[in-house]
Structure formats: C-alpha cells, structure tokens
Simulated scan of single mutants.
Amino acid sequence: MRFVKEIPNTYCKTSLYVFNGKYIIKFEAGLLEQVFKVSEMDVTGEQEVEEMLNDMFYARVIQRFKDMAEDFGKLLED
C-alpha cells in the first residue's frame, strides 16, 4: 500500500493511499478508524477523490465515530 497524501480538514485525520487498483481513504479519530475504498476506474484521479469528501460526508463519518465510540464503551463496561 502506497501512501499518497494527507487530506487537510477540520474533522479528523484523513489519509489517502493507493493499493491494488483502489484509492483507500482512511479516517482516524483517537483509537478508531474507518476505511473506504474507491476503484481507480470510478474516478479520474486523486483530485476527484478529495472533492467527494464534502462537509456532509464528513458529518456522517464523525457521527459514525461517535456511534463506534459509544458501542466500544458499552463493550468495555460489560
């Protein structure tokens, strides 16, 4: 997997990789991470991948991190 770049934003650490014909977008917040894969055939390049990551998408990513943290917290309580 080849690191391409970090994508600056105000929400969370976002890194872009390329591997096996796919762009891999990795979001990190503390101990949690989310990964999305996009086929290189579905986009024209790195710029288009970045343009896909709008505020609405980041809002869903952040909500998912909150849900993940809540689920993990409950798991540790049991």
Rank of each mutant, 00 (worst) to 15 (best):
M1F: 12
M1V: 10
R2W: 01
F3V: 05
F3T: 02
V4L: 14
K5D: 06
K5Q: 10
E6G: 04
E6D: 11
I7S: 03
P8W: 05
P8Q: 00
N9P: 07
T10R: 02
Y11C: 06
C12L: 08
C12T: 12
K13S: 11
T14P: 09
S15I: 02
Y17D: 09
V18R: 08
V18A: 13
G21F: 12
K22C: 08
K22E: 15
K22A: 06
Y23R: 09
Y23K: 05
I24G: 02
I24Y: 07
I24R: 15
I25A: 11
I25H: 10
I25W: 10
I25F: 13
K26Q: 13
K26P: 04
F27I: 09
E28V: 14
A29N: 15
A29C: 14
A29Y: 14
F36T: 03
F36P: 00
K37P: 04
K37T: 15
K37I: 10
K37L: 07
M41Y: 11
M41E: 13
D42F: 08
T44Y: 04
T44P: 00
G45D: 07
E46Q: 13
Q47M: 02
Q47D: 14
Q47F: 07
E50I: 14
E51Q: 15
M52E: 11
M52T: 04
L53H: 13
L53P: 07
N54M: 06
N54R: 05
D55K: 08
M56E: 14
Y58R: 05
A59N: 11
A59R: 11
A59P: 01
R60L: 07
Q63E: 12
R64H: 05
R64D: 06
F65S: 04
F65D: 09
D67S: 12
D67M: 06
D67K: 10
M68W: 01
A69D: 06
A69S: 08
E70F: 11
D71N: 14
D71K: 14
K74C: 04
L76Y: 02
D78M: 08
D78S: 09
